[in-house]
Design a protein around this nucleic acid. Structure first.
Length: 910
RNA sequence: GCCGAAGUGGCGGAAUUGGUAGACGCGCCGGACUCAAAAUCCGGUUGUGGAAACACAGUGUGGGUUCGAUUCCCACCUUCGGCACCA
């Protein structure tokens, strides 16, 4: 039996955790009699020790899992390790430990931390992605994709450190320089493996419409990332080379075709390279563009620069000569690597044209300009085309025809386009030969028809999404299962030779991958001709492992990627992870599920039906500035906050010396600002339940959560109070039985509050995932109970009902305390095995009266208490009679009265 | 640069479908208990004016729609997340 007075989290938690562990309480099997529920939290990168972001993510998953289990579902909640990746290599260099050893030690430590927080996983399904028993199936899948033609090899650009002679991750490029060597990074094209995610672009887009349980923000970001656009491919013949391959561009604005004044191509475009052979200044310019990294943020924020290639194209409709420029903002891997420039109607082209003095032409106008032009045309009997219009505007005839106003409208609009900036809205065409007067849609169709008839273009759907480059030139990753043979080419490693094992016991200097440095490892024989051959030494992007782990959990020990058990559990019912994964991981995850489906391994279209993206954990920062300007950061635990008598923060002092420190604002918990709070320390100080409770209470799950130790103490106080309330009630010798029909008004009120709380908490946990308000409702209920000092038999019976329901409702968040208190309340069985969610007694919810707010002209002036069945007339009469209201309508004319039953009466007076 | 999100008391946040802004917690102020302190319990706490009743203002800024807007629309500001090799 537990100590009836004092709440001692350390011993309670040790007992509960031992029980869950020893009884294998959360290991599940497929059970035809119970509805399955698959609750998945994003698995852990084994960085060394758990941080608050993990605590938050996994508490959410654990609360949902335990809640769903109380709803009678067969809940699968697994955990694993996303164990390959760059940090292990960095740690290896720093600490002179092989990446494998560092990783396995971290996993062992962090697994213990998860258990100490009371997160209950089915550990029999644990996956560790750096082990051959996991990655052999990743290799198997890849070889199958190769055979299907969904994996292919092509050149792609990477960040190259010319000093270290190595490829750098974008993260390792700081201000355009290698993070270790400090050398200016270059772009370099090397052959790499790709998966054809673009073949699935339309499916990935359409699938979003069938995911009502995913946040709109994530779906919108994915839609924009996939970036479907409908437009035209336009072929511009090269001047003087009618038989050469034309320069093809893609445009979503065919209505602006007649406003093209130049073409822009990427530096890597074949035409640019060809032209550079004859023009040293062009070659130099292109060479200069190789400096710097490859990240899109870096490319897109660069100053827009370009150079004339000297090549000329022919406009497919007007036959005009159009110059071809190389521009640094044109990306080779988007569209065709070439764009038509319409400076009058595209802001980026406009800026480029102004900078290099290229012509700007107005070919689309708004309604008012179109009408003005029509007026001028009528008066002057001229067409809308460029030259007649110019003649009309410049010919000095405007006054003679009394069209000055119309002329000014046109001139002003055109001046805007020439001098202020591009007009990029849809409008009506002018200066466009036979297309004048057409609107966007009509022009689109007319231009498409014209080009298709001439063979100079066609309609086309284009996606922004690019194929997924999966090659990494690193050691600590899954080896790509490919063999290169001089005579047979690139071949998949035969299935019976998998896995291709990554050696773990290696010396790692950081400059070169040990498997690249080891000729023995590389050497193999060709599976086709039996001749000497070499292995691929690149490894997979770690997003490969995290794209299918959710499926492997369903089929532990399966001899294929997954087995039939996958369809029992999939799709995942609830997936939980950080918003930073909104695009990349979650798109690859969805893509991979479709690959598994098309391989016949699963029979659903999407991997997860509901998604919750939790926010970051942030904390206040504290620092002192040295004379040199450098800052020393102090952990929140080392600092005391000072306040004035109103509670405003006035400053902070360091505990160590009592002298002031500066406040640096609230930031994401990070080593660089030393504001990380160690979960382990918090668990040691307050217990896991308190840490879990605070992380669920302090903010709604999708917002950022500010860690604040005073708030943690508040949660500890609540749990102590609850513990005392239950234990002192349980110390009463007898247990009267509740008769709901025989209650006093005060008892009925408390019972109504209880059942309203049951209703709200269930809705908050299950539907809204608003754990913070669920906990607030339980706190309120405890406050009501604290004021309820009825020690009659009925009063004590009601208290018992309230406390029992509260133990059940708090159980998902604070399972250790509830495990103990359930027994304190006299239940011989454990809460886990036998108890469902408390039932709402709808009879207890009924009320006799309700409160209506009364407004005069929308301002609250009072409230009235009325029977629940009061009519609108009764409500209006009671509202008018209320003295605080009557004052404001006296002597005024009542224009209108709005009655919203059960809510409000608004009296509108003149 | 592009895509997405957020902004409410001293602080974290609540207000679920356009209907009483500030639930709940922290902090602070006052009180009880105590020789005292801690712990605990009780009360108060958006701002301004007022002894009070009460009045006025108030949800990032500026506009708009509505009987009524934290909630819907337009523009803007600030902060945060992502941008394809961090995971």
């Amino acid at each position: 039996m537990h100590d009836n007075e004092r709440y001692d989290p350390q011993s309670i938690e040790a007992q509960a955790q031992a029980f869950w562990r020893d009884s294998h309480a959360f290991e599940v099997r497929e059970d035809p009699d119970k509805p399955p529920y698959y609750c998945l939290s994003m698995f852990m990168y084994p960085s060394g020790s758990m941080h608050m972001g993990h605590v938050r993510n996994y508490t959410i998953g654990d609360v949902i899992s335990r809640y769903q289990r109380m709803q009678g579902r067969n809940v699968l909640q697994p955990m694993g390790w996303d164990a390959f990746g760059l940090p292990a290599e960095n740690a290896a260099i720093k600490n002179k430990v092989p990446p494998a050893r560092w990783t396995y030690e971290n996993i062992a430590h962090m697994r213990g931390q998860l258990q100490r927080l009371g997160f209950v996983y089915d550990w029999s399904r644990e996956v560790t992605t750096c082990k051959p028993d996991y990655y052999r199936f990743e290799q198997l899948m890849f070889t199958r994709l190769m055979r299907k033609g969904l994996a292919y090899r092509k050149n792609a650009v990477v960040n190259w450190d010319p000093v270290d002679q190595t490829v750098l991750a974008n993260e390792q490029v700081v201000d355009g320089r290698g993070w270790r060597s400090g050398a200016v990074v270059e772009k370099r094209a090397i052959p790499q493996w790709f998966l054809k995610i673009t073949d699935y672009a339309q499916q990935l887009l359409d699938g979003l419409d069938h995911l009502p349980g995913w946040p709109e923000a994530v779906k919108t970001m994915q839609r924009n990332w996939i970036g479907r656009s409908e437009g035209l491919e336009v072929h511009f013949a090269l001047e003087g080379e009618p038989d050469a391959e034309p320069l093809t561009v893609f445009t979503t604005r065919p209505d602006t075709l007649m406003g093209v004044t130049f073409l822009s191509i990427a530096a890597e475009h074949p035409l640019a390279r060809r032209a550079a052979e004859k023009r040293p200044e062009l070659a130099e310019f292109i060479e200069g563009l190789k400096r710097g990294g490859v990240s899109e943020a870096e490319l897109e924020t660069q100053e827009k620069r370009g150079i004339d290639t000297g090549l000329r194209a022919v406009h497919p409709i007007s036959g005009e000569t159009i110059p071809i420029w190389v521009a640094n903002f044109v990306l080779m891997n988007y569209g065709t690597g070439a764009v038509m420039a319409v400076p009058g109607h595209d802001q980026r082209d406009w800026e480029f044209a102004r900078r290099y003095d290229l012509p700007i032409r107005m070919v689309v106008v708004d309604r008012s300009v179109l009408d003005a032009l029509r007026e001028i045309r009528h008066d002057l009997s001229l067409g809308v085309g460029a030259d007649p219009m110019r003649a009309a505007l410049e010919g000095g005839q405007r006054d003679a025809y009394d069209s000055g106003a119309a002329v000014r409208v046109v001139e002003e609009f055109e001046r805007g386009i020439l001098e202020t900036g591009a007009w990029s809205e849809h409008g009506w065409l002018v200066n466009s030969d036979g297309f004048d007067g057409l609107d966007f849609d009509a022009a689109f169709d007319a231009v498409a028809a014209r080009l298709e008839a001439d063979g100079t273009g066609c309609r086309r759907v284009n996606y922004r999404l690019r194929d997924w480059g999966v090659s990494r030139q690193r050691y600590w990753g899954c080896p790509i299962p490919v063999i290169y043979c001089e005579s047979c080419g690139a071949l998949p490693v035969p299935e019976d030779q998998l896995p291709v094992v990554l050696p773990e016991d290696v010396a790692f200097s950081g400059v070169q991958s040990p498997i690249k440095a080891d000729p023995e490892w590389r050497r193999t024989t060709c599976p086709q001709c039996g001749g000497a051959a070499e292995r691929e030494t690149d490894t997979f992007d770690t997003f490969m492992e995290s794209s299918w782990y959710y499926a492997r959990y369903t089929s532990p020990g399966a001899s294929d990627i997954v087995d039939r058990r996958a369809d029992h559990w999939l799709p995942v019912d609830q997936y939980i992870g950080g918003i930073e994964h909104a695009i990349l991981h979650l798109l690859y995850f969805r893509f991979y599920h479709k690959l598994l489906r098309d391989a016949g391994l699963v029979h659903s279209d999407e991997p997860a039906t509901r998604l919750l993206c939790q926010g970051m954990v942030v904390a206040e920062t504290f620092y002192r500035e040295h004379d040199s300007g450098s800052r020393v950061w102090f952990n929140p635990g080392e600092v005391d906050i000072e306040r004035d008598e109103r509670g405003h923060v006035t400053g902070a002092t360091l505990k160590a010396d009592g002298l002031p420190v500066s406040l640096g604002g609230v930031e994401k918990m990070a080593k660089s600002k030393n504001n990380g709070v160690d979960p382990q320390l918090m668990v040691d100080r307050y217990g896991a339940d308190t840490v879990r409770l605070f992380s669920m209470f302090a903010a709604p799950p999708e917002q950022s959560l500010e860690w604040n130790e005073a708030g943690v103490e508040g949660m500890s106080r609540f749990l102590k109070r609850f513990w005392r309330e239950v234990t002192s009630h349980a110390s009463q010798p007898d247990h009267p039985v509740l008769d709901p029909a025989q209650l006093t008004p005060a008892q009925r009120t408390l019972r109504r509050q209880l059942h309203e709380t049951i209703q709200k908490v269930g809705d908050d946990y299950g539907r809204r995932h608003a754990f913070n308000t669920a906990i607030a409702a339980l706190m309120e209920l405890l406050n009501h109970l604290g004021r309820f000092d009825d020690m009659s038999e009925a009063g004590r019976a009601l208290r018992h009902e309230v406390l029992e329901a509260m133990v059940l409702m708090l159980n998902p968040v604070t399972p250790h305390a509830c495990h103990a208190l359930w027994q304190v309340l006299g239940h011989p069985e454990t809460l886990l095995e036998d108890q469902g969610w408390p039932q709402v007694d709808t009879a207890a919810l009924e009320r006799d009266t309700q409160t209506l707010a009364v407004q005069v002209n929308g301002k609250l002036r009072g409230t009235v208490e009325l029977p629940v069945d009061a009519s609108r007339e009764d409500a209006e009469a009671a509202a008018r009679a209320e003295p605080s209201v009557a004052r404001f309508i006296e002597g005024a004319q009542v224009r209108k009265v709005i009655v919203v039953p059960g809510k409000i009466v608004n009296i509108v007076v003149a």
